[in-house]
Design a protein around this nucleic acid. Structure first.
Lengths: 258, 258
DNA sequence: ATCAAAATGTAAGAATTTGATCGTTATGGT
DNA sequence: ACCATAACGATCAAATTCTTACATTTTGAT
């Protein structure tokens, strides 16, 4: 166990990317990490020496000791991009707005961004980490947590109680995150309990905002959450790829976070 | 764990900036903090020695952006004693027990202790930090969070909704913490909303357990929560002082955590 | 007001990282 | 077995970052 203490953000994102897919090619990683293939090779060699990854010709993979990939490492994927998307989403809020906040690391970034929002807001969430982050501003923000059963390491509350409580609200905005997207433009996720929560939030909100990093564009899920067209805004860190644009009735709803 | 006591405002700002994105470069920090890169390096070195940040070439990062160090770690008194009290309280649980868990740093210690408890348990709480701690064991533990409004930096949920939800439970144990005690043996606290939650938990639990560090024996509050005699166990880190013993109908309920 | 100690800024040299080049090695198809 | 292609490792130069040392400023106490 060598020094895994001072790994730079690129190392962390590299690990996260490999964990996310189980394996990744040098070229893919070089493109994602914005560096040369040479550097990726060096990083991989280092991480393999530290027994974090296993390498194969052309890339690296990870033996998953746990089926569930760590919530902590998910945070390392597209950290900067998630921050930018969160900032854009928050910048479009108005004083006094009431919003639903979904679970996921992207929404955690929104919570962090809201700390710097200096105006009154109402926030309703089933996201424990976000709620705890927001608690630092509880004098300014009106934060409501819906009841439920803790469903994941990230502190997502789900279950019939959660759904039932959500239905008693009617808010201005819902900020939703998902795991992936399919070829027809439907957003996907894995946990049906969490999907129910997302759908309920959308039904009880005026403006629906989707937060989806470009990494999600090539990822999947097992169950449909909603269609792209059901959202009033789609916030991403890159412009909409052509194949996505053709799936949208209103491609102008796509927004790129700079 | 070195001295976190005398952090100047720049240090706090630096930590906040690193927390915002999870990591930050020296250059970025120097610009935002209006100081030289060298000073930033010196600050970072200090904070890394204190285990607040981790450094990497070119900047620094923080391991858990979502856990604030404002609340739990900084001014928590009697940490060791609280750990011992928590261990004693947890040791008296039985597999399958269902318990209410109150807010406060003492109860956060109980949550941490429960992580090592290897048996099935049901936990109902309005304590966000505890719930998030317990989430790491969500496969083994059945964790329910009641809905409500975030009332403090520590992530306490309160309000009529919280009370109403609590009344639908009937659990084996309630673990309660308070701010102080008065001369007649009544436990005291400050926030009437939180007091209502404590009282409701007690009404809907079989065994009532009070967790009270010796520091609380000379502290006060502004409103009565309950009397010492209403608890089936009083866990403290010291033996009951004489003046307290005379106030209790059953002094044998007092337990000292070793 | 004065001095000592701590904090901050500046600069030069050392160390690390990175991308590119090039010869070597592994892989897959014929 | 052979060849074409892609991946790899070593090496080097350029760029960036770190450390060390020293000058300057600020702070606190007498």
């Amino acid at each position: 166990m060598t020094d895994l203490a001072h790994l730079n953000p690129r190392h962390r994102e590299l690990i996260a990317l490999v964990e996310l897919h189980g394996h990744a090619s040098i070229e893919f990683l070089a493109q994602r990490l914005n560096c040369s293939a040479q550097t990726v090779r060096r990083d991989i060699r280092k991480l393999c020496d530290a027994n974090v990854l296993q390498r194969f010709r052309g890339g690296a993979r990870i033996e998953k000791p746990q089926v569930r990939l760590g919530y902590a490492t998910k945070q390392d994927v597209q950290q900067v991009e998630k921050g930018r998307m969160a900032a854009l989403a928050v910048s479009q809020l108005q004083e006094g707005d009431a919003l639903f906040l979904d679970t996921g690391t992207t929404c955690d970034h929104v919570a962090r961004e809201l700390l710097n929002y200096r105006k009154r807001l109402h926030v309703v969430t089933h996201n424990l980490t976000a709620a705890l982050t927001l608690a630092a501003q509880h004098q300014l923000l009106d934060i409501h947590v819906v009841g439920g059963k803790v469903a994941g390491r990230d502190g997502a509350l789900t279950g019939s109680r959660t759904i039932k409580e959500l239905t008693s609200y009617r808010l201005d905005v819902a900020m939703i995150a998902v795991s992936g997207i399919d070829a027809e433009g439907y957003l996907l996720d894995f946990d049906s309990e969490k999907i129910q929560v997302k759908q309920t939030m959308m039904r009880h909100a005026g403006r629906k905002v989707l937060l989806m990093g470009s990494a999600k564009l090539c990822q999947r899920g097992i169950q449909r959450v909603a269609h792209l067209d059901e959202f009033d805004q789609v916030i991403c860190d890159v412009p909409a790829p052509e194949e996505i644009q053709t799936l949208m009735a209103y491609p102008e709803r796509w927004q790129e976070a700079l």
